[in-house]
């Protein structure tokens, strides 16, 4: 029999440190597969965030550079500006990209930086232990919203992708999910397209991926993918937010 599904070349054979059922590692695999299929492994530089994916450089078998919390878009900008022949992507969680790094992200998008952002939205601060994130939905219980997020006190969940869609320099922005094989395949297509936008030198691209965090949501992995589809998707509907032809 022929092997039809195996680990992509751009993903090291290092076991993931992520919790059981975590969406990060699925997304790592998808990004790696896209890098392999586009044949860009040897000219890609990745910039992971602070947060659970801070150790992403242990998994991707491409050149990887750390960034301070929230600053991945700026670091990727620096790399890409001085070496336009490289393919630069940032890999950022919701706290990283939509709270502390909002300014860097919006301005990178608005300048039309030729970088690709992978935005993992799991509605919670994972690595620090489950605090409220900018994308925590109203009513959601976190360690810093023990009675649930109350918008009039804690603010509303932030639609960062929609905001980035308004920026003139963004070319392609799509929100997807990794809650089922169907969505995972859609996500891979979106990631591929986002990298293509960069390869075609067209501008800023971003894929927001709704991703389960069973540990901090205090759910089983199976419950967590259901929560993504039944609850998160009502607040953050998957769709193509911007696609400049």
């Amino acid at each position: 029999m022929k092997k039809v599904f195996a680990r992509p070349e751009s993903l090291k054979l290092t076991p993931f440190h992520y919790c059981p059922g975590c969406g990060h590692s699925i997304i790592h695999r998808l990004v790696s597969e896209v890098i392999d299929e586009l044949g860009i492994r040897e000219r890609t530089v990745g910039v992971p965030p602070a947060g659970c994916a801070v150790l992403a450089y242990n998994y991707f078998d491409v050149d990887m550079a750390e960034a301070p919390h929230g600053r991945a878009a700026a670091v990727a900008t620096g790399i890409k500006r001085v070496r336009p022949d490289l393919v630069a992507f940032s890999y950022q969680g919701d706290g990283d990209i939509a709270a502390i790094g909002t300014a860097e992200t919006i301005h990178a998008a608005n300048r039309g930086e030729r970088i690709t952002a992978i935005f993992v939205n799991n509605a919670v601060y994972g690595m620090t232990g489950g605090q409220m994130a900018p994308t925590t939905i109203s009513g959601q219980v976190t360690t810093t919203t023990p009675l649930g997020r109350a918008p009039l006190r804690d603010g509303y969940p932030l639609d960062l992708s929609e905001m980035l869609g308004i920026a003139a320099g963004s070319v392609y922005i799509e929100r997807t999910s990794v809650s089922s094989p169907k969505w995972i395949n859609k996500t891979k297509k979106a990631i591929r397209k986002a990298f293509m936008v960069q390869l075609e030198d067209r501008g800023f691209s971003l894929v927001e991926i709704l991703s389960p965090c069973p540990t901090n949501w205090k759910m089983t992995p199976v419950q967590s993918i259901r929560w993504v589809e039944e609850t998160m998707m009502t607040i953050f509907p998957p769709k193509v937010i911007k696609d400049v032809a």
């Binding site: 029999m1 022929k2 092997k3 039809v4 599904f5 195996a6 680990r7 993903l11 076991p15 993931f16 992520y18 059981p20 059922g21 975590c22 969406g23 990060h24 590692s25 699925i26 695999r29 597969e33 299929e37 089922s180 094989p181 995972i184 395949n185 992995p221």
Partner: peptide
């Protein structure tokens, strides 16, 4: 595809032309 830990490899009997992982689903 769903496995978060890339712990599963899939094999399939070859029929027509070669299938790739991409087309597996």
């Amino acid at each position: 595809i769903q496995c978060p830990d890339v712990a599963i490899e899939v094999y399939r009997e070859e029929k027509e032309q070669s299938t790739t992982a991409k087309k597996a689903a």
